[in-house]
Design a protein around this nucleic acid. Sequence first.
DNA 1: GCTGCCGGGAA
DNA 2: TTCCCGGCAGC
Length: 550
Amino acid sequence: MHARRLVKRSVLGSRVYAPPGPAGDGAPLAVQAVKQDNRDLSTTGTGTTTTGTGGTGTTGPRRNVYTVLLKEFTEEEVACGTKGPLKPSLKQNSNNGFGKGLKGEAGGPGAPEEQRLAEGKRLGRPLDPDARSVSLLEQKRKVVSSSIDVPHARRSEEEVDMDKVTAAMVLTSLSTSPLVRSPPVKVSEGLSGSWKETGSTGPFTPSSYSSSGGYWSWSAPSDQSNPSTPSPPLSADSFKPFRVPSLGNGGGGPAGPEDPSLDDQDGSSLLFDEPIPRKRKNSMKVMFKCLWKNCGKVLSTAAGIQRHIRTVHLGRNCDSDWSDGEEDFYYTEIKLNTDAADGLGGLCPALPSALLSPPLPPPHPPHLPHHPAAGSAQPCGDALRPPTQNNIAVAVAKDNHGGACNGRLGGGGGGGGATPLSRSAPSALYLIHTDHAYQATAPVSIPSNGSSCGGPALGGFTPTNSFSISWQSPPVTFTGNSVSPSKSQGFSEQRSQTIAVLSSPPRATAALSRKVRGEGKKCRKVYGMENRDMWCTACRWKKACQRFTD
DNA sequence: GCTGCCGGGAA
DNA sequence: TTCCCGGCAGC
């Protein structure tokens, strides 16, 4: 059971980007497992990433150690799949679907075994702990490591990048997101098994928005194939923070904790186990906006926007509903707050109006992958690679962050969401949900490290920034570069002013304005308590005497 | 402790 | 708007 969980959580087969640097300039990496019999766990130092994987608990006295390696592949290897370890998965999966890919890979001698193993686990049957386990592990290793998602036969660089991004995000989620503690079990499975099948036959249940399956979703129901995960099925909403790739509003970073905002309500609730107010959720209307340059078309359904992108921008056959998910990166989700009472008025206080006032830059549709400005606007993002056609990660991250603070904030900089809709609709902003308590008293501190990271998207929140808002306690902290240089100044200045106003002690002003106590005779003294009815009205009311003013 | 009066609630 | 009162602050 545990072993299986580990396997499922394994990143084997995932492709990730190495951080920009001398060694790995974003070169695609594949996580592979190398079996090393009888090796001590502590000696697995060959790989970039090491981890003791499953099997240690079921292999008996003889321990097999698997070293997870990050292997590098050239663009050609990844994109063409003509050679190298990735080839099998590419070929096998090129028939549109992980599940199929998995099966294809497992089509060998190990497939039935794997299936039986799964079934056996499902039925709670004990497994044969001996050689069978070993072979199973090897098979599993094969299956997992080779089942790298290859969405479709049409294997363009963009698609490759999408996979990379997905893998990277998964890894990020696994390592950083507390939320992933339980859901993550599905990650590798999703990647290796049923991602692309979510829409149709796979065990995965497509999230409410995943009409195309272009983005990965964890909204897998209680994983029918894996009873070992007690986690209850999460609602589609609960996964919003994770569906970043397709959600422009998405909160923050690639996964979870960093992203506060937008989906804050969801994200925070997930992070802090706070129930999500139904009211707000119901008041949010979701729209989908095309991010294609100079387009900005807004549709009410994901399918519609995808079709739009597919046909209008990608020039694909409109008759075909087939989608490889590419469209997902060209539109963003916009939440419109339809609840007037809880809408802008309620939210604005959280973000001082001054913050919202900065002149909006000219509409600049955040054209994700193609937008040159985006890259120039965010020179820093270690997690972000230069804005090349390949770099969908940038788009995703930007999109998410823009969403995080979305709206006008997000609409800002380099490629934010300064689209007509985002500007006209207060919605984006809404993504920063606040509690009134916080609004009222919150001492707001915005420690900005003032790095060169001029925020592109709206505020320029980058994955490396930490943006945290506590909805429970007044202190609200914004850490990291939240805005672009030019904008940040105005932003911070105005903000500080606002803060000053907010924090100004009422008492102090009251003391200054408090009427100096009159030393003269007052009605009370003159008439005494007995003749109170002779007092002036003010005196009777304990107000400043109007009769004997000083 | 007395007194002036601000802030705010109730009618 | 009027009436009333809790509570703060000066003395």
